[in-house]
């Protein structure tokens, strides 16, 4: 099995505060982390490798410091890591990003499976995975909460709003996984040592993966951001006051009124 896992370094939005005056995110001093669902993708890939053999290759596009995110997944057990880093790639939207990643994957050679996280916590688009599948012309199965490989196919349990769906797709294929898929492992001492002592992150510029200049970076990005804003805070809930007995009574009454009981 040759499994490729594209990952993204994102700001830790748990730490992000909102500037009360401008309503924008304050990103200064906020740690960067590996996008949480990308860790689920790594875990899924590592579990398949442990069962079926093969290798797990992590791939990312971003500024040079995104190498830290790749080192983290190498510490978890990924075999190799590639970082697409080039000024020419800056300003990419999801289309240009998916284009670059799929070009790089083509350059890496044959693969059996691409496992992505469902979406990144900074953009929440969930577009890059599906777009990559289109570029690479392979089947895609999104929102996986369980996946397995049976002979030459990947069998995926999809978590949908109104139920579950099981889909079988011939490999090579692309799967995007959700948080529920597994519990990502912690990096081990051996993994950390490997990530830090060896030069594990290969750096590629745009020409290394034969990207056409008009399709990358800002120029290759058709998306126009009209406006970003923070949604208004939710209205405060109803507060019940009084003695515990009164509060309990009111609560029960409210529940009954709303048909929750």
């Amino acid at each position: 099995m040759r499994i490729i896992v594209p990952i993204k370094q994102v700001p830790n939005t748990n730490d992000v505060k909102i500037d009360p005056k401008t309503g924008t995110l304050i990103r200064e001093g906020v740690d960067s982390i590996v996008n949480p669902e990308d860790l689920n993708a790594i875990e899924a890939a590592l579990e398949l490798r442990e069962r079926l053999g093969g290798e797990v290759i992590a791939l990312s596009m971003g500024p040079p410091q995104a190498a830290d995110a790749l080192k983290e997944v190498v510490a978890m057990g990924a075999d190799e890591a590639y970082l697409l880093t080039d000024r020419a790639l800056a300003g990419a939207d999801t289309l240009a990003t998916a284009y670059c990643l799929s070009r790089a994957i083509t350059k890496l050679g044959d693969f059996d499976l691409i496992v992505c996280g469902r979406q990144a916590i900074d953009g929440d688009t969930a577009q890059v995975g599906p777009q990559m599948a289109e570029f690479l012309k392979v089947p895609q199965v999104t929102y996986a909460c369980k996946l397995d490989v049976v002979e030459d196919s990947v069998v995926v349990e999809r978590h949908l709003e109104d139920g579950f769906e099981t889909v079988k797709a011939r490999m090579p294929a692309l799967v995007t996984v959700m948080r529920e898929a597994n519990r990502p492992r912690y990096p081990s001492m051996a993994g950390i040592r490997r990530a830090c002592t060896e030069d594990v992150v290969h750096r590629w510029v745009a020409t290394d993966f034969d990207a056409e200049p008009w399709r990358i970076g800002f120029d290759g990005s058709p998306t126009w951001v009209k406006r970003t804003f923070t949604p208004p805070p939710k209205a405060p809930g109803k507060r019940l006051e009084g003695t515990p007995r009164d509060v309990a009574k009111d609560l029960l009454k409210t529940f009954t009124e709303k048909n929750l009981l």
């Binding site: 830290d68 080192k71 983290e72 510490a75 912690y186 990096p187 001492m189 950390i192 040592r193 990530a195 830090c196 002592t197």
Partner: peptide, 15 residues
């Protein structure tokens, strides 16, 4: 701290 030490600290904190 070195990169390695930071990663160990982070892994230990997380765990």
């Amino acid at each position: 701290l070195t990169n390695e030490q930071k990663m160990i600290q982070e892994a230990a904190r997380d765990f």
